[in-house]
Design a protein around this nucleic acid. Structure first.
Lengths: 340, 340
DNA sequence: AGAGTCTTCCAAAGCGCTTTGGTGCTTTCG
DNA sequence: CGAAAGCACCAAAGCGCTTTGGAAGACTCT
């Protein structure tokens, strides 16, 4: 059932039927009702390929997925996707993932824009002066950055959490509890979020005249194993930290294991705070010693970004507004005063 | 730069240029070279929307993503996606995720097929007599099922792992080690994989005249918390099991925690084997007691399914061939003879 | 009554590609 | 040598939608 057939059986022109269906004003309300009714009865659905060709709109949002045998997609991605999908569903938006060589995403961005494959894109895991942001910005497709890229000479729309503030607050708390030697187990420090987190910790320490010791900051892919290794290395040093701030719950799993292996205890020998993106399958309150966290739902961020993308596509949102969400600091059993 | 312009500047018809580019035989090789060369030089890329309209081919594969505020996407999904993306990238295939109400995916399947939005789809987490498989099969779009759906009165193409065999082997090993009371902590038993795993365990036990006790099988969403709860419940029973087979590494995390909380040890008081889908961020060999596993890379499955979908789209693969991959049984420190 | 203004609809021209159904020319073959 | 076959190309007709540029009729106003 296509437009031609439908308009023929209504004894109307394709023009009128199309307009009636798309809510244009120059059509009699009575006629519109007839058309909409007939369309529903016959299950008419405009062919999206044809509509795309005519309008250029696709009803899809895009994401360039970095891949490669050595590239792991973050488990965070799936939670983000849950949120995104949740919003997208209610607006009949689809998401297209375009796999790209992790080292050459630009080609793919150019392709999906040149081909008009999607109406908007989002960018995640941005780095300082991220070239993708610059590229997408000049290509002129609506976009939102999940996170931030510092050092760009123009503004752009983003949704980020207050990583610096969160880690500042976490570190400050530890300092207030008497800790003098803190360590940071961070994610990949080529990414902005990690840089901000480190900055937050340093700022909190500086406020009390402290510094983050030379060997007291690690930057690694966020796996359990890396958390373990980093913690072992830190705790076996002569000036081992008495408190650790950690960028991920998964890494924290490894930290806990390391502490146990070394025969130490949390929070007696070591205080621990980790960032929690809120996974349904791993909760900080269920750690053997309930874990204090800086908490921000990545799922909510996904929904928000879908919402903003939809708004930008339909022209409801414009400009380069960046929004920064506050992060909760949730205290549980894993922190205590510094050991004497 | 579109076909019209390109053909005009080559002084050829659009027909010939199109044919030259698409490898049709009725064009002089010399001409073809000229055309291809010019296309490359001017960066000509056929407009996919137009091509879609004309051919119906989209160059995309589809997946209906169940969503809802109460619905969690499995972290396995992201690993699967890594594999899928890896293959898709090298074939310029994109993946479109169509979010759907978890309780009504059929509407979405119908939509993406009716709209010709994708060339093929895959279905994951199938259940017995899965309606999606039946639907997609009648809709006549190429598809592959990741996993299996029993009880359908027709054949269909799938790629699955030998869940029954894997869990049979795991259970048999435990029995051979002298265990008489086994328990199974399973995933959602409405899904085929969980049914097969339970069957495998029962078969192994039956071979030695044993049974899976009434309260010795749990079926839960695969979270750490559920693993913990299930293990506590099992171990606090009067006829507590001396060995547990567990459907997921994440649940196993909870099991380990429960064992520790109860002051027991692995493998002294309890032997444990879990299924490992091979996550880069959580490895069984790094458990405090290295975990024995049934192992099968879900990432490889993703790549394989992308490969098969591509083959079906291009007509290279036909028929309803199902393939079942063997699963490795990897023995590590978490199993031992039954306590006396 | 005639001019001007709405309202409501339509024919036809795209959008950029593929594919059908040729055409004119050269070769091959009985 | 004439017919058949093969080669290399083209014009034009879709694919199914949106949108431009009217046009016919109803209505208002002087």
């Amino acid at each position: 059932m296509n437009l031609k057939q439908l308009s023929h059986m209504l004894a109307l022109s394709q023009t009128t039927v199309s307009r009636a269906l798309n809510g244009y004003p120059e059509v009699n309300e009575e006629t519109r009702r007839r058309v909409i009714d007939a369309a529903k009865r016959h299950g008419y659905r405009p062919n999206p390929s044809a509509r795309r060709l005519a309008t250029g709109k696709t009803g899809m949002i895009g994401y360039v997925l970095p891949t490669g045998t050595a590239v792991d997609i973050d488990p965070h991605f799936v939670e983000f996707l849950s949120g995104l999908g949740d919003y997208a569903r209610s607006h009949e938006l689809d998401l297209v993932l375009s796999p790209a060589d992790a080292d050459d995403q630009e080609t793919t961005y150019r392709r999906i824009v040149a081909n008009r494959q999607v109406d908007a894109v989002y960018i995640s895991s941005p780095r300082p002066a991220d070239r993708r942001v610059a590229l997408v910005s000049t290509l002129g497709i609506p976009f939102i950055v999940h996170g931030r890229s510092d050092g760009l000479d123009f503004d752009y729309p983003f949704t980020d959490i207050d990583n610096e503030g969160a880690f500042h607050d976490a570190a400050r708390l530890l300092v207030q509890l008497g800790h003098r030697r803190l360590a940071l187990i961070n994610g990949d420090d080529r990414e902005t979020f990690a840089i901000h987190r480190e900055r937050g910790v340093r700022r909190a320490l500086a406020a009390s005249g402290l510094v983050l010791g030379e060997g007291h900051v690690c930057s690694l892919a966020m796996t359990e194993e890396n958390g373990y290794r980093a913690a072992r290395r830190l705790l076996e040093q002569s000036d081992a930290p008495t408190a650790i701030v950690c960028s991920s719950l998964i890494m924290a799993l490894g930290v806990v294991r390391a502490v146990r292996d070394l025969g130490r205890t949390i929070p007696g020998d070591l205080s621990l705070i980790a960032h929690d993106d809120v996974f349904p399958w791993l909760k900080p309150e269920n750690f053997s010693v309930p874990l204090s966290t800086t908490r921000s739902s990545i799922r909510l961020a996904g929904a928000r970004i879908a919402e903003r993308l939809a708004a930008r596509i339909s022209g409801l949102e414009e400009g380069a507004r960046g929004e920064v969400w506050p992060v909760d600091l949730v205290i549980r059993g894993s922190v205590a005063g510094a050991p004497v």
